[in-house]
Every structure is written in C-alpha cells, then in structure tokens.
Design a protein around this nucleic acid. Structure first.
Lengths: 229, 229
DNA sequence: CATGTGCCTATTGGATCCAATAGCGTGCTC
DNA sequence: GAGCACGCTATTGGATCCAATAGGCACATG
C-alpha cells in the first residue's frame, strides 16, 4: 500500500503539496520541462496535472509562458468556506424539504452514533482524531448525496482543494487538545441539531445550521496562524 | 475570423455540441481513438478535451473503458439552477453587507440604464434580444465580481456548461414574443430590486431576491419542452 | 451444466519527437 | 538617442509510438 499510486496522481499530489507548502511561491513560473525534470517524469503527466490544477483554481495560466500558483490568502480561504457553507446549506434544505427516507435516517443515525462514541469518554484518545475525520466526512458526504442534486457535489469539488476550505480539512491545534476536543464536540452537536431539523422537515433551520456549521471553520485561528507562519 | 480557432478548442467545442444536441447519446461510450479519427485529429486533443469535459461534469469516466456523456435530465438542470441561485445569492449578500462603492454603483446604474432602454418602447425589436443577453450577462458578472469572492465565480464556472443552467442561457420561446417580453422585463425589474437592496445594504433581501431571480428560470417551460422534444 | 481460471485483445496512460508560436533581444534606421 | 522591425530562442501544443492494464471470451474442470 506504499507505492500503488499511479505516476500521474503522484505528480498531481506533488504539485499540490509544493504549492500548498510554498515550495513554489505565487508569482513564480511553472514551466513544463523543468518541472518534469525535477519530478523525474515526462512532460505529459505534468501537463495533465497543470490543466487539472487550473480547473481547480490553484494555478492560473500565464499567457504562453507557463503557469503560476494563484495567491491564496486568508480572504480566499474565507471565501471558499463561505461557498461551501451555502452549498451544504442548500443540500440540507433540500433534504429537509423532501423528507428523510427510512434508509437515510438509519444511515445518518448510525454515523452520528459513531460521533457519540467518540465523545462519550470525555477526552480525545490517539485514534479518535482519525475516527472523527472519517465520521465527519461521512456525515457531510451523506448529506450531499442525499440532496439528490449532483451539481452540489460538483461545485463543492473545487473548494475542497484549497487548504482548510474542505469539510475534510480539520485544522487541529496539537498544543491545545482540550480546546480542540470542545471544538469537535461542538461540531458533533451541530450535526445532531442538523439531523433533528432534517427529521422534523424544518428546511429553514437545516440550512441555517449547516451554513453556520461551515462558518465556524472560518473562526479557527489555527488556519490563519499557519498561513502567517 | 473563420479559421483562427486552435485545433484543441475546436475539438472541445465539437464534443460539447455533439453531447448537447444528442449526436452522442448518454450511455454511449466515447473512446479516444474512434473520436480522434472521426474528428480528423490525433488522440491528444481528444484526451485533453475529455479531461476538461469531465471536470465540467458533462461526461464521466467509465472505468478504463473511456467516457460517457452524463445524462442530463430536467432534475439535473433544476439542480444546477438551484446551485446558481445560492451562489449568486451569496454574492449579492456579500456586496450588500460590504456596501457598494461609488464606482460599482455607477457601473451598475449604467448597466441597468441599458435595460431600461431596451424595455422603454414596450416591445422587443430584432436586436434587442442580443442586447438583453449582453445586458443580463453584464449585470450578473459585475455582481459576482463585486462580491470579492473568487470562489463564487469558480464554482459557477461548472454550472454554466449545462444547458439552460447559466444566466447567459436565455431559453426563448420564439412563438410567444409577447410572453417573453414580459418575462425579460420582469427579470429586469428584479435586477432593479436587487440594486435597491444593494444600495440600502439590505443583505437578507438582496440574497432572497437573487435566489428567486435564478428560480424563475426553472419555471420556464420552454427548457423542458426542448428536453422532451 | 456451471464456474473458475488463464490468455488475448482493446483501450487508456506515459514518453519522445516534431511543429507552431509568442516573447525577447539586437541591430538598423530615422 | 529612440523607436521599430527582424530574427532567434525558449516554451507550449500536437502527433506518434510504446507500455501497462483491465475487461472479455473461451476452454477446461469439477
């Protein structure tokens, strides 16, 4: 399981990482040939990856002189999180309006039970962060899938690539695990509240809750500290 | 101006058209080699175009057996329009919250004046449809740009490729020009209402109006008739 | 007769090569 | 001395070739 990654995917991941961690600074040119040489592949996967990153909005074409990373500042991240908020809010609204099916309710309950289990003992254990990651993602994904509107998932696909913008991107402060425990538990309780709104068919409330749920990520100071540092 | 199109762009446009007009039906396989042969180019631009269309959500990968057009039904279009509604609603909200600058207000007023001129004489002339198209697009684009959130424009980029989903896609019933005149004038009046909400800083109202403005496109029967026929 | 296995072929992904193009520097001219 | 034009070079886009892979079919076996 260490090396099954296809070359093309590795190039894409490598470029994403380099852009994210500042190895390639915004404003710097990204040409195909040097990049391909540096990564030890041909120009082809690099070209593919750059086109994909352009579609994702991470880089922008620089005329006929290659690409350059798009500057990603705190405002951009905030904007992406706002977009996620309204899209997931729309998903929640639609699910509430349509009403939960038996199967969906059972599935959501099962997912939320995982969350309950994580926080039952009052603190975070080692594997719990990974557990929360999966639980959180499952909740959001199921909600989006249940919305019955594929355009929502499609539109969300973009934002998830920006750092900290995705629901999957947990910005954890490892120096303040108690604080993080409270944050994550609050998020879990918001999930429960959304679930109640869905069950009762309160579309307005479901949308509002879901929007607010995304907004808390904006308040996470850790993300901005990392940007500054 | 007849032949300046780059080969790659032509392939992309050709595939889009073929998918839109049903030359390639959903469920049918799109393989690189036959497609390239049919279009008289090599596999490379076809590959590029298919990747782009996949990002746009018009086709989906069929395992290792090529691509297939995504089925686009009335529900999909409705969904895309809903997404456009919440995104443009978010843009309007942000502009209203932040307040219009002098320059933005003047620009919007100039654009709206174009709309006023179009409807002043009480009926639609020949070139007016084109005029409305440009006016409408200018209004929406300016609003999105003024939101200061590039993620909105990025997310909207996806939906505009689906037929009838974009603000630029006017579904006109050429057999009922009087009815269309009323529709378009109503849209123009909604623009005016949004502008008022922006000026007064009523974010809630601006968002609601903008959402409703997108929703009227859903009610347009013409789109569904075209789908059926 | 059904099922599992192994080979074969069709198809995509990657590498290398070639052509077109745009930017840029230099030199000439006014 | 400044501006324009020409040619050069760097870089992307396209074509062709090769390798890896997955799906399908046939055959053998239980």
């Amino acid at each position: 399981m260490d090396k099954p990654a296809k070359p093309g995917q590795q190039v894409l991941a490598a470029l994403r990482r380099m852009i994210a961690d500042g190895t390639i600074k915004p404003g710097a040119r990204i040409a195909e040939i040097p990049t391909a040489a540096a990564l030890g592949v041909s120009r082809m996967p690099v070209r593919t990856a750059l086109r994909a990153l352009e579609h994702e909005g991470l880089v922008e074409k620089l005329g006929a002189r290659g690409y350059t990373p798009r500057a990603v500042d705190a405002a951009a991240i905030t904007g992406a999180i706002e977009v996620r908020g309204v899209l997931e809010g729309l998903a929640a609204r639609r699910v509430a309006e349509r009403g939960l099916t038996e199967a969906e309710a059972a599935q959501l309950e099962a997912i939320l039970a995982e969350g309950d289990a994580l926080f039952a003992k009052g603190h975070l254990a080692e594997g719990d962060l990974d557990g929360f990651y999966r639980y959180n993602l499952a909740f959001h994904d199921l909600l989006i899938a249940a919305s019955g509107n594929p355009s929502i998932a499609l539109a969300l696909g973009r934002n998830n690539h920006l750092p900290f913008a995705s629901a999957a991107a947990l910005a954890l402060d490892w120096d303040d695990l108690e604080g993080e425990y409270r944050h994550l538990r609050a998020a879990h309780q918001e999930h429960r509240a959304v679930f109640e709104a869905l069950r009762t068919g309160d579309a307005e409330r479901a949308e509002r809750l879901m929007r607010g749920h995304a907004a808390v990520a904006v308040a996470n100071r850790r993300a901005f500290r990392m940007l500054a540092g």
